[in-house]
Nucleic acid binder design. Structure first.
Lengths: 346, 346
DNA sequence: GGTAAGCCTTGAAATGTTTCACTCACCTGT
DNA sequence: ACAGGTGAGTGAAACATTTCAAGGCTTACC
């Protein structure tokens, strides 16, 4: 049927117009306002398009329109399923608005993030969603300053110069440790780092706050810092934990995310510790793998998809609504108790 | 400094030219062939660009060039880390060629895949890499027919009308079951499905071939079909496995991918089975979570990143080399033995 | 002083689409 | 018969960039 490269180059509206014996304005009308074209002409044009194998050239549309029909999400860590679920939520909303979503992955590297942003700005995407490596990096402010709709995901913005969507991380830290106190633990560890990551700092703060409020001794709250938020680092934290003198060894660990928790869990099991009896573990994010772990993991749930959907809603509002006001959407995390903290001590 | 929206719209080369007092051809030369422009002029133009906050409009470049500066990868299942590692490999190669990579996710749904492909063709991407839902779907042939560089990933093409990159799945099935036979198992299960997925069929075939070649009884090879390749389906397969009369219950399971294996592992542990003593488990893909499972998972490794890099190399060759010939790159899988098959029976 | 050779710079054309002010033919009601 | 209206289609302009033939200026050389 369609004879794509009759003369090497893809057919344009002009070719279609010639083939159908109409002006190219009419072809454009068939594409964009079919109702203003008579049925007979419309059909003739449509047949010509099919015969030639015509495909709209998106760059030309964009050039004319001044903006692309796409949103972009720059995620922090492609290896962490959490960000995928967020992306999934964004895509749902983008789909509903008939927009494409470009997903990029900075892999926690500032220069990669900057490169992605550069490209996206050149592409004139309608809006940018990002979970940034560093929320105060100047290239982010630059985006907002340029007037590109911009939403920070999983991180609340300090200034009010753009929207953001996140879970209350301090509260998340609180409920994790409250749960452990509830279970009778008297010595707990916080596993997470580096502290350049805001989420880590806030979850730690919430955890520590509760610890103090319950009148527990400062020395019974151990901070095990990690280099990154990966399962590998979780295992290494497990080794350090096992190396502590038994008097000082915590009976429970609150990990800053589920990957750390899964790594820690793995090390514990390998080392012959029983979970939760010898070591209780709480993670954060409640990724699908948390429930699927060999000892199902207690975790602080974030509404991952909803985070994404809300972020997309905000960026679209900024893009289309002239009266848009920046908004900081904060969600409430919830504890999902599973076997990894299953027993009450003492 | 830069005054973005002096009059509402982003500054163009024309504005830069006016500000620097040169023609717009010269501005373009500064951007694309800096060496032909005298140092003084170049500097003047660059200062003007900085002052105006000029940003190249990618759509206009593309329109002129006739093609975008991007590759695309449509992955089958965003929830499976395997595809991420493949994407990572592709991105490495794309980066080296100074191309962007658009990552899309069909989520195993044909219509979503088709929609993504439509958009990508409209964007005039330089090449498309895809792990298809159905390798024989007509919309795939259509892409190749249009002359768009096209590579199938994780699936060997039957006809020779495009490149493909994959692991030898039949061999993968063979080595998994050879390993189990080696460990003394006399009754094994294959967990995986639906059989519309080619990978599943081939891994099963390899497994069955070896079983026969070793002269084992047909009835001691149990096929437990699943609806999808997820951890949830793995758990449900575990339930069915546990429900078998003990005379017929296999002592080992070979799962068509690691997600299934992790789900099965979780169910086994929950149900009080010891892994590997009561049930040995082999997965496929060797995703990072396999090693991080509470009982580290034996798995058939695919060279995930290399799969991606090779695919990108092929698509770039097709895009740039007029003498390109289609190539079916097949990789050899390797067994990675871990604790989940750790004991020898009998 | 004329000229050939470089080096820089210019201006116009081309890319594919959308929009919008127009025209043209035909109809309606007076 | 004619003003006014309507429905269908037209053609040129605009979007931002790149390319390329052509031209201007300087320099060096005869």
């Amino acid at each position: 049927m369609s004879q794509q490269s009759r003369n090497g180059r893809a057919p344009s509206v002009k070719d279609v117009a010639a083939a159908a014996g109409v002006s190219l304005g009419t072809v454009s009308n068939v594409l964009n306002r079919p109702s203003v074209v008579s049925a007979a002409t419309r059909e003739r044009v449509e047949r010509a398009m099919a015969e030639l194998g015509f495909i709209r050239n998106e760059s030309a549309r964009q050039l004319r329109a001044g903006t692309s029909r796409a949103l972009a999400y720059v995620m922090l860590d492609g290896g962490n399923p959490f960000f995928h679920d967020v992306a999934e939520g964004i895509e749902t909303a983008a789909e509903a608005a008939d927009l494409s979503l470009f997903v990029c992955n900075s892999n926690s590297r500032v220069e990669r993030e900057a490169k992605h942003l550069d490209r996206l700005v050149q592409q004139r995407v309608q809006g940018i969603l990002i979970t940034p490596v560093d929320p105060d990096a100047p290239h982010l402010a630059e985006i907002a300053r340029r007037g590109i709709p911009f939403v920070m995901v999983d991180r609340l913005s300090s200034g009010g110069d753009h929207c953001s969507v996140a879970v209350d991380d301090v509260l998340g830290g609180r409920i994790a440790v409250e749960h452990l106190l509830d279970r009778g633990h008297q010595r707990v560890a916080f596993v997470g780092g580096p502290s350049s990551i805001g989420q880590v700092r806030e979850r730690l703060q919430g955890a520590r706050d509760v610890w103090r409020e319950f009148g527990m001794a400062e020395e019974d709250f151990v901070h095990l810092p990690t280099e990154a938020m990966t399962a590998g680092e979780g295992r290494s934290a497990g080794e350090r934990l096992a190396g502590l003198p038994s008097r000082r060894r915590p009976t429970a660990a609150f990990c800053a995310n589920d990957l750390l928790a899964l790594g820690l869990l793995q090390h514990a099991v390998t080392a012959g510790l029983r979970v939760p009896d010898d070591l209780a573990i709480v993670g954060f994010d409640d990724i699908d793998f948390a429930a699927a772990a060999a000892v199902p993991l207690t975790s602080v749930r974030q509404p991952r998809q909803e985070l994404g959907r809300t972020a997309a809603r905000l960026v679209l509002d900024e893009a289309t609504n002239p009266d848009h006001v920046h908004e900081q959407a904060s969600f409430v995390p919830a504890l999902v108790a599973r076997a990894s903290t299953g027993t009450v001590r003492r």
